[in-house]
Design a protein around this nucleic acid. Structure first.
Lengths: 206, 206
DNA sequence: CACAATCGTGACGCTTTGTCACAAACACTC
DNA sequence: GAGTGTTTGTGACAAAGCGTCACGATTGTG
């Protein structure tokens, strides 16, 4: 067992993953640290240093093989397998997430879409049927789900979070504005585009 | 004119902003560095240090006044005003973004929704009419827009990015998987939930 | 073979962050 | 109004992380 990566390194590896995935899709077979640097705004030397910690993946004078490097990074992050996630909320945002191809590319499967609204239960989103919230516990157990995504209005977000935790979720992606109260062994990632935007604006104006 | 903040400080201030906004909505009039720390996983001492760089906003023995601190931070980030953004893509994701209350709370107005599809042009999303992409340049000039949000499939994302740049956009939020090529004075933020999820998974499994 | 490109890596200094410690200010109770 | 507990503001210092320069090693190309 290798030591645990620091937050910074893991974050940068994730960025590399993102760039490499896209590069592969665009048919690029090789990529240099310089090119990755342009897309990520991360220093090229830093990139090489990050990668060389885990092995010699590149060829001098040539660069890295896109495919191979992608696999290496996934291995480092130990996320090569298939992961099932549960999505709560079958509204506009939920539908958008469920039908996005972005997850499948990274080995993540939206294994269930759930909603409280009886009218939505049973309807189809992509090739998934919307399940009732009452089935959450069973579904989570059956499909080995530890990641939940919350795509409901802020008013019911805490309730959904409680139920996800009750069903065994350990990682929650929160797309509502609500601040969630969860046990300390559960990890919440709240995404707030508005705040990210203000952050970006600051650097633009400076 | 104060000096420019470092990336780290600005990022943390943004997190505080997020927490404070929610705290205010929940009717909390005062908040302590300790409480902010619990929601952000940022050290309480660090929080106090960050804030004290810009003034003495808190009261010893009491904490910070939510309202006042919120305003202070917005002032530090120089983002108190009203900001107009253009949203391209009137599909599921676009609609979800356009009708989210999350932006209004932070002084950000979705000033225009645009789409290529003639069938969508003219239809309403919330209280906005969808405009044609052809009107982008005019709209951007009239409403002083420098921020564009891309909510279209990856295949047309680069095209949209080019047109946004042509219309004067300096900050682009990209919700597609595509890697975008833009001039160096334009700032691209690509959001990839799948990669963020792998990142979170790594720390869970470790 | 000469040359250009690119990786891998040592070295070093700067910046940022984490942490302990503690005085000053405030609220509350009795 | 004295005493107690809470919380901020801040100094000091150690640890970690990052940026950068430099340079040899390796590979592809003409």
């Amino acid at each position: 067992m290798t030591e645990r990566l620091t937050v910074g390194v893991a974050a940068r590896l994730s960025r590399y993953l993102q760039v490499l995935t896209q590069a592969r899709k665009m048919g690029k077979e090789r990529i240099s640290s310089q090119e990755i640097a342009e897309y990520t705004n991360i220093n090229a030397t830093q990139i090489r240093r990050d990668l060389s910690t885990f092995g010699r993946f590149g060829k001098r004078g040539v660069g890295y093989r896109t495919d191979a490097l992608l696999e290496e990074i996934r291995q480092i992050l130990r996320t090569q397998g298939q992961h099932n996630i549960a999505l709560v909320g079958a509204g506009r945002l939920g539908s958008a997430i469920a039908s996005s191809p972005i997850f499948a590319e990274h080995g993540i499967t939206v294994a269930a879409v759930l909603d409280n609204d009886p009218e939505k239960v049973g309807s189809r989103i992509g090739d998934l049927a919307v399940s009732s919230m009452d089935d959450l516990v069973d579904i989570a157990r059956e499909r080995n789900i530890i990641v939940g995504v919350i795509a409901v209005p802020a008013s019911s977000a805490q309730d959904v979070a409680d139920r996800l935790v009750g069903a065994g979720a350990k990682i929650i992606f929160n797309y509502s504005e609500a601040l969630l109260d969860v046990p300390s062994d559960v990890n919440v990632h709240t995404s707030n585009p508005a705040v990210d935007l203000l952050y970006a604006l600051y650097f633009h104006l400076a």
